[in-house]
């Protein structure tokens, strides 16, 4: 196992940040921790990177115990925290050589690993890190986390607040790193990124709700979801919520995702109900289940 987490719990004063969390990550896997702010994702990262000690349970990274063998772990993993944590007043180049030096290596030694990413920021290598744009900071931070060729890479919300284009590029970079044999644990609040992982753990309020491949999670969802649309979206949400047999009603992009309490409910009845409420240009069709749908029903 690259990462093994057994029943770990951690409280801050009387708030339980994580509660009996267990999961395992296989070598070479791209594993996602998916959950909103406050789910406990960062606490898990800090425990696995030996920056925080658990109250209960054990965890190991590349077979090293997070408490006993903390020094060995620090040499074998790369960690990119959610908050930008490089030296703002060092240049791009200085930051990189600083991190290489403290890990007892050189930029040249592992250049192959970071090359794809580094060439994108190389034109700005004399610029102070603090003066970089968000996307470039992110790339520099990733280079610094990779410069000692870690076996496992920990990325805590690398794409939060990042626009869709840069997010897409970032995930392409992760896939390339994975192909080089690096195990990756990544967290994100964006449910659409979940489908890019090999396996995911859905987390909320400190508890793991589900662990599986994203495909299996959506395939095993038993309820039927309908895409519903009309000219007046706001009125539609309201009216669907007043439909007696509704189970859930959520806005979902251009459609409303509607689930009925009865598996065999009659679409015609619903359509007639909506027409009666003066909706026009009504569309009702079966929707494709997403991770977000499953998450909302947990």
């Amino acid at each position: 196992m690259s990462i093994s987490v057994q029943n770990i719990s951690k409280s801050y004063k009387n708030i339980k940040a994580i509660d009996a969390v267990s999961f395992e990550v296989n070598p070479g896997e791209l594993f996602g921790l998916i959950g909103p702010d406050g789910a406990g994702k960062t606490t898990i990262f800090r425990i696995l990177t030996t920056l925080l000690i658990t109250d209960e349970g054990t965890a190991s990274v590349v077979d090293y115990d997070v408490v006993k063998d903390y020094k060995a772990i620090r040499n074998s993993v790369g960690y990119m925290p959610g908050k930008f944590s490089l030296y703002q007043d060092l240049t791009v180049e200085e930051n990189l050589s600083f991190f290489a030096t403290i890990f007892g290596t050189t930029i040249e030694e592992n250049y192959e690993l970071i090359k794809d990413i580094y060439i994108q920021i190389e034109p700005f290598k004399k610029r102070r890190a603090g003066a970089l744009s968000g996307g470039m900071k992110q790339k520099l931070a990733l280079c610094c986390a990779l410069i000692h060729a870690p076996k496992v890479l920990f990325l805590d919300e690398p794409t939060t607040g990042v626009d869709p284009v840069s997010r897409k590029e970032f995930w392409q970079m992760l896939k390339r790193l994975q192909r080089k044999g690096i195990t990756i644990l990544v967290s994100t609040p964006y449910m659409d990124e979940a489908s890019l992982c090999d396996r995911i753990a859905l987390i909320q309020k400190g508890k793991v709700l589900k662990i599986d491949s994203p495909q299996a999670i959506t395939a095993n969802y038993e309820k039927v979801i309908y895409d519903i649309q009309s000219k007046n979206t706001h009125g539609l949400i309201h009216d669907l919520k007043n439909y007696p047999s509704h189970y859930s009603v959520y806005a979902f992009g251009e459609f409303i995702h509607y689930i009925d309490k009865n598996a065999d409910f009659n679409l015609k009845d619903l359509e007639a109900y909506l027409e009666n409420k003066n909706h026009s240009e009504i569309i009702i069709k079966k929707a494709i289940t997403t991770i977000e749908d499953v998450f909302m029903d947990l």
Binding site: P36, D37, A39, E157, G161, Q204, H234, Y250, A251, E292
Partner: peptide
Amino acid sequence: EPTGGVDPITRRQFWEMIYTQA
């Protein structure tokens, strides 16, 4: 960016508040 990092259900409740206000 009013909804960054918020869970999916709260995010939708937030948008319902926006609709109502509009």
